[in-house]
């Protein structure tokens, strides 16, 4: 069964969506979209890492992305500049350094297009192992920090006074995000990973009453988008990343249409 490239891509995408759903909720709640982009932009530097150190591609990306997370964490406290400027600096710095380093390896045939937009043919059996193993660890870690992370999302100072260490929690969350970016590289690609984090979460927001239900529903929504997008990609031979993102976007538009119609019918009870 795993010999079929489509099944491999599907399993990888499902593993990715399950982790991306809850993490995407925190991106939306805490307005961390640009933080997510910054981590994603460091992925090409990670590819260079992987080639230099002869590591697995995803491990290299995880290492580079984690490095950027730690840099953001340390520099943010210095209060040298506004956070978006800091992220812009790191994001494009990492991207430039990554591209420059990769240009030194002309003999390596790097599928840049695949890295940016995903490639359904690229998922190997080893990738599957890394994604599901890493995904299990990521979910376990997320459950472990769930309570302090939600508390810090509501208000960091309240969480700190309650002894919940919001800084430490934020750092662990960043590393989890780095793991998602690494796992996403072959399925949606670095340019579109933030869309897979954000769109399911905002799609499901109006239908959720608690952080927990929103996280689970975002995972399910993301999963549906991945399955639909991969199917579309296999059928009409399009890059996987854009296909998945478009299906997610379609789900978003349909949900808002449904919401509008529902509200129009029952104005008293929105």
């Amino acid at each position: 069964m795993l010999d079929d490239f489509f099944i491999r891509a599907l399993l990888a995408g499902i593993g990715l969506a399950i982790v991306a759903g809850p993490l995407g909720c925190f991106i939306v709640w805490r307005r961390l979209a640009y933080f997510g982009e910054t981590i994603a932009h460091s992925a090409l530097l990670g590819v260079a890492f992987a080639i230099l150190a002869e590591l697995d591609l995803m491990i290299g990306i995880f290492a580079a992305a984690s490095l950027v997370v730690v840099l953001v964490y340390m520099l943010e406290r210095q209060e040298l500049m506004p956070i978006d400027s800091l992220l812009g600096l790191l994001s494009h710095g990492a991207l430039a350094l990554g591209l420059l380093t990769l240009s030194f390896f002309p003999t390596f045939r790097i599928d840049l297009h695949g890295l940016l937009f995903g490639n359904i043919l690229a998922v190997s059996k080893q990738d599957l192992l890394v994604i599901w193993l890493g995904g299990t660890i990521a979910i376990a870690t997320l459950l472990w920090i769930w309570k302090p992370l939600v508390a810090a999302t509501l208000n960091e100072e309240l969480a700190a006074v309650s002894g919940l260490h919001p800084d430490r929690t934020k750092l662990i969350f960043g590393v989890l995000l780095a793991a998602v970016v690494a796992a996403a590289i072959k399925i949606v690609g670095v340019l579109l990973i933030v869309a897979l984090l954000i769109i399911p979460a905002v799609t499901i927001r109006p239908f959720s009453a608690s952080p927990e239900s929103m996280a689970v529903r975002a995972a399910v929504t993301g999963l549906a988008a991945v399955v639909g997008g991969l199917y579309l990609s296999a059928q009409i031979d399009t890059p996987t990343g854009p296909s998945i993102v478009l299906i997610a976007l379609l789900a978003f538009v349909l949900s808002r249409l449904a919401l509008t119609m529902f509200r129009a019918r029952k104005p008293q009870n929105p």
Binding site: V28, W29, R30, R31, V150, T153, L154, N155, V202, R205, S208, A209, S210, P211, S213, M214
Partner: peptide, 8 residues
């Protein structure tokens, strides 16, 4: 408080 965080 983040308006997108659903919490009762």
């Amino acid at each position: 408080v983040s308006p997108t965080l659903p919490i009762t």
